[in-house]
């Protein structure tokens, strides 16, 4: 089990820093031109709000140490693996094309979500091939999208 507290602190810190970056960058765009607001007006206020609420949440999480509970390690691993599979699909598509790349993507995702034995993997593979054909028909033929 992984405690969620560290994730919350991390997300609050990232959002807080993003807020500060918005204020800094927004000021660079120009806050006001004469008496009317400029391109940086809205970002400065949003950044301030984001930084303020992120700081408040950061402090709150620090004070309430065990309030958030935890998440199963396998679930986090699953999120990471699906994301990696998708990144692999994005990279592979340039070389072997989207339709071909989608087959290993689907088989990988099936395995990540529990297809472990030979029968399940065979079923997922069949679904993947069938689905690739359907995707070709829908996106390539009906919608005429130029697939990679």
């Amino acid at each position: 089990m992984i405690p969620l507290r560290s994730f919350d602190l991390g997300l609050s810190a990232i959002f807080g820093l993003l807020g500060l970056y918005m204020i800094w960058q927004g000021s660079g765009y120009g806050y006001q031109e004469g008496s009317v607001p400029s391109a940086g007006f809205f970002p400065v206020w949003i950044g301030a709000g984001l930084a303020l609420f992120s700081a408040l949440n950061f402090l709150k999480v620090i004070r309430q140490s065990d309030f958030l509970g935890s998440v199963e390690r396998m679930e986090v691993v699953r999120v990471g693996l699906v994301s990696l599979a998708l990144v692999g699909f994005v990279l592979l598509s340039d070389f072997i094309g989207m339709l071909v790349a989608s087959v290993p993507l689907m088989i990988a995702i099936g395995c990540i979500f529990g297809a472990r034995d030979a029968r399940s993997i065979a079923a997922v593979s069949a679904i993947a091939v069938g689905m690739a054909f359907i995707l070709y028909l829908v996106f390539g033929v009906v919608l005429a999208i130029p697939l990679l």
Binding site: V82, V90, S93, I109, F113, I127, M131
Partner: peptide, 25 residues
């Protein structure tokens, strides 16, 4: 239907659908 059979198809639809908006990976 188990997620191992359903989610691969749904995620593939997502990937193709998003690509299809602006033809952009």
């Amino acid at each position: 239907v188990r997620p191992s059979y359903l989610f691969p198809a749904v995620i593939a639809i997502i990937a193709f659908g998003i690509f299809g908006i602006n033809n952009s990976m």
